[in-house]
Design a protein around this nucleic acid. Structure first.
Length: 578
DNA sequence: TTCGGAATGT
DNA sequence: ACATTCCGAA
């Protein structure tokens, strides 16, 4: 309510005639987080060179250092209209992200944190280039507005509505344009905060022409670069802008939006995902087969790139650790965030929340190959270490499965995809096979992990990353394309696996939802269950997406994804516009 | 410096 | 949910 939307109608549920899930709007409207979230803000700052004196990317992927804590705090405070903000407070907020796995602290380095992109799922694309090695300059434009709008982390929302989403029509009409609505800050133009906005604003100003459908985000999102390599992982844009290598040396103009590479007809990748990141299309499921079919048919016309607002989605479970309910006992665990001791069993089911959040998340996430590791490997100067290693989880396909225990992760159930999908076995879909190939020799269990990791050696030009995951249900096999049509992309590098059957699962597992634990154990349990579930109940099939398909022959998927993006974009527009 | 609990606000 | 504020502990 805070924002009134002129186009109320659209604001509500429909955009362009399509109905959007409510959750799509949540982000902005969500009460707690009024508008921008701290991490979005950080990202914003990071992408602007103007602030590089106060905060900047530092070494590895996602790692950034707050050079001037006070200033950052000031900026944040300004943005939130909290003049009393200081680094101590800001850092507390940052610390909360640890549990959410949005961030990690880089140990040993002052004021240095690192985004766990691994765990984040970018819904659209990552624009961020965190410099994996190189300097990260500014990331692409994060649409301010857009960024806010993140998709739901609530699983249920996302998935559950699956049906709704499913309808092909959904996204179809959405307009392509979007806007970045950066605005909306508290001050509305008043004083302080503005710096950021200023910049943003400028851009925005141009765009804004009015609430019309046309405002676009033209610049916003670049379509993906034609090919992303791992290296380029984060940087989304390839284009001319990519600055290469030298990081910080020059002046760095923030890259405006690069605009485009265009999508060629054949190759465009619509929106790509970053390789390493797992991205999930917002509504992954929905598109599933139905989309393919329908969209394919319906959408066809051009492929424009749709810009999409990129957004991150968090993956893991938020764990609700907080239970203060009487327990109090938890205190002990405090420090060691990671593994504390968890007495696991006792609390076996701390609370059973119905929310499938975790589930969803897990499901949502599609895992892809993680780049991060690669990067790390490549780069790993040995520095940072582990912290990320832990993260290694990246793979965790399912998501949150293993929390941070530094231990070896239990192999989660990666099985998901295997479970009963004949297809899988058939390999009709591209991915599976690959998976194996990569693994080569792993034990089954390990395989699973491996699978996710597989990316070890991506083919260089990694082409497009698939946005959408197709899901094949057991009964139906999606017509996945597969055919490599041209020489385009032969290498399949990524494979997404998705398990969607939330519903089913939920039913099947009543418990898994439990997830709320903050600590690992839950994860483990879940994993196990998941595994089991995978085999059994899970009938849910897992979806595997093949990137190839995208690139190659089936534009449909891509498109569908694009549609999504557009839709999202619109949403953001709406929001912002309002 | 960093961490995280607790209470509180939005 | 997501902070903000306060604060004691490493």
């Amino acid at each position: 309510m805070s924002h009134v939307c002129p186009a109320a109608a659209s604001c509500k549920n429909q955009v362009g005639g399509f109905a959007f899930p409510e959750w799509a709007y949540k982000p902005e409207s969500s009460p707690g987080s009024r508008q921008i979230q701290l991490w979005h803000f950080i990202l914003e700052l990071l992408r602007k060179e103007e602030y590089h004196e106060v905060i900047a990317w530092q070494g590895d992927y996602g790692e950034f250092v707050i050079k001037d804590p006070d200033e950052v705090a000031r900026l944040w405070g300004a943005r939130k209209c909290k003049p009393q903000m200081n680094y101590d407070k800001l850092s507390r907020a940052l610390r909360y992200y640890y549990n959410k796995r949005i961030l990690h602290k880089t140990k040993g380095k002052r004021f240095t944190y690192k985004f766990n992109f691994n765990k984040l799922v970018l819904v659209n694309y990552p624009f961020i280039d965190m410099g994996s090695g190189r300097v990260p300059q500014s990331a692409p434009p994060i649409p301010s507005g857009g960024s806010h709008f993140r998709f739901p982390s609530t699983p249920s929302e996302v998935l559950s509505p699956s049906e709704d989403l499913r309808s092909p029509g959904l996204f179809g009409g959405v307009a392509r344009r979007m806007a970045r609505g950066s605005v909306s800050d508290c001050s509305d133009g008043t004083s302080t905060h503005s710096e950021l906005e200023e910049t943003a604003g400028a851009a925005g100003a141009e765009e804004r022409g009015g609430p019309g459908p046309d405002r676009g985000f033209r610049g916003l999102l670049p379509p993906l670069p034609p090919r992303m390599t791992h290296e380029s992982l984060f940087r989304m844009y390839g284009g001319p802008n990519l600055r290469g290598p030298a990081p910080r040396g020059h002046p760095e103009p923030p890259s405006p939006f690069p605009v485009s590479p265009l999508p060629g007809p054949g190759g465009l990748l619509g929106s790509a995902l970053s390789p390493g990141l797992s991205m999930t299309p917002a509504p992954p499921l929905p598109l599933s087969h139905s989309l393919a079919g329908s969209l394919g048919a319906s959408l066809g016309p051009e492929d424009q790139q749709h810009p999409s607002p990129f957004k991150f989605k968090l993956q893991p479970p938020p764990l609700g650790r907080k239970q203060r309910d009487g327990g109090a006992s938890s205190a002990s665990s405090a420090q060691s965030s990671s593994s504390g001791g968890l007495s696991n069993s006792t609390m076996a089911t701390p609370k059973i929340k119905v929310e499938p959040i975790s589930d969803v998340e897990s499901e949502e996430e599609v895992e892809v190959t993680d780049i991060s590791e690669e990067d790390e490997l490549m780069n790993h100067h040995g520095n940072e270490e582990d912290d990320e290693d832990e993260e290694g989880d990246v793979f965790t396909p399912t998501g949150r499965p293993h929390l941070l225990p530094r231990h070896p992760y239990p192999h989660h159930a990666l099985h998901r995809y295997i479970p009963g999908n004949p297809q899988h076995s058939n390999g009709s879909v591209g991915p599976p096979p690959l998976l194996h190939s990569d693994h080569r020799h792993h034990h089954p269990e390990e395989d699973e992990e491996e699978v996710f990791k597989t990316p070890a050696t991506p083919p260089l030009s990694a082409p497009p990353f698939p946005l959408m995951s197709l899901k094949s249900e057991p009964g139906q096999a999606p017509p996945t394309p597969i055919s490599p049509g041209g020489a385009l992309c032969i290498p399949l590098k990524l494979r997404f696996k998705r398990r969607w059957s939330e519903d089913q699962k939920m039913e099947a597992d009543g418990e898994r939802e439990v997830a709320e634990d903050k600590k690992v154990r839950s994860a483990e349990l879940e994993d196990r269950e998941a595994v089991r579930g995978g085999g059994a109940g899970a009938a849910a099939a897992v979806v595997v997406v093949v990137e190839e398909s995208l690139g190659v022959g089936l534009p449909t998927q891509r498109r569908s994804s694009s549609e999504l993006q557009r839709a999202t974009a619109q949403l953001s527009l709406e929001n912002s516009g309002c």
